[in-house]
Design a protein around this nucleic acid. Sequence first.
DNA 1: ACGACCATCGGGGACGCCCCTGATCCTGCC
DNA 2: GGCAGGATCAGGGGCGTCCCCGATGGTCGT
Lengths: 216, 216
Amino acid sequence: MTEPIGVVVVDDHAMFRAGVRAELAGAGADHVVVLAEAADVDEAVAAIRTHGPDVVLLDVHLPGGGGVEVMRRLAGTTTRFLALSVSDAAEDVIGTIRGGARGYVTKTITGPELVSAIRRVADGDAVFSPRLAGFVLDAFAGTIEVAAIDEDLDRLTEREREVMRLIARGYAYKEVAKELFISIKTVETHMSSVLRKLQLSSRHELTRWASDRRLL
Amino acid sequence: MTEPIGVVVVDDHAMFRAGVRAELAGAGADHVVVLAEAADVDEAVAAIRTHGPDVVLLDVHLPGGGGVEVMRRLAGTTTRFLALSVSDAAEDVIGTIRGGARGYVTKTITGPELVSAIRRVADGDAVFSPRLAGFVLDAFAGTIEVAAIDEDLDRLTEREREVMRLIARGYAYKEVAKELFISIKTVETHMSSVLRKLQLSSRHELTRWASDRRLL
DNA sequence: ACGACCATCGGGGACGCCCCTGATCCTGCC
DNA sequence: GGCAGGATCAGGGGCGTCCCCGATGGTCGT
């Protein structure tokens, strides 16, 4: 409370960064100080290393790998990350939390609420927009399943991933075969492996699965 | 140039509105004045009627019907609309232009660029982010096709639309039949009509078609 | 009353999707 | 050298998808 909280704002929209800065200057008063801004992953890593902020306001979708990449590169720091995103998609939220963020709020937040969220994160609390809190808990209740997803994807061979991508985009087996210069039967074999490894049962589920993970 | 340009800012994110206001105050200097802000369709319509701005900065995705709804309700005013969106999806851009906007820029824009865009729109020019200009022209080159899309959708009967929605979500014929308490054969008949009327040839194309138009 | 349109069903067929078994070739590893 | 795993292909079968044909009953407008 006596010490102001140092913050670095990471977002690829200059306009939005200006908005955060303006709101924090008004509602944050002496409590929160914006030390620096960054517009992509490289800038963010450099700025955080230079300024050592207490809290980083981190956009999820960011040129250069996304907010998760920033946290990965700074693993081990004492800095706390608060994700700030337009997306309320479960994959984004879960992925960001698993990447190490201490909270996740959407950009519909108001200035005073943001100040409050920053202070709570700086104090070590976890902060979530009300609507998100629900499935964050759901996800951690089913941690095994969440962890298993990436392992399953890793189990796919290179060729299987190629086939999977085309199928998920709506290509018929015949078209995949022509595209990859292989027989239809080979496509069927790969697809069979893909569905088995991902524990899916049809191309439609695969399409949904892939689009949920933004693999298209 | 002598007269300042009056602007109303419509966006559901208070933070973003603050950013626009701050940037316009800095880079816009005397040339641009923010008359009012609004966070949803009703507020926007009221604010624009009250203040009669030269230009409205209009977010595309907005509670209460979207930016298009705002323009529809204010049809006939001399106010010019500049769409300001995170989305660069063709449907959003085309739909907004068809709704009456004089320009469309993404939120990656900087303050000075936004001031420039506002002034050009106020002067009667059309303004587009460079990457978007291409397919805006494409769309107007193929105006017949764009106009035909909605006519085709209108040609579907109520029952056909129900079937279409379920199929597009990945339901099998059998599942659709159970869901709607009809025979599989009836589902097939409806699907056949849907595909013929929409000039598509498979459920996969239908899925893509529907998701492109956010009918899911 | 008649035609136009819609929703509902059926038979039958061509082809796509998915699975099973089984096979060859190559590469890398112990 | 054997052994595992990946990529390639084949045959055959069950079921889904999409089409053709035809049929009945209901509603609406003229």
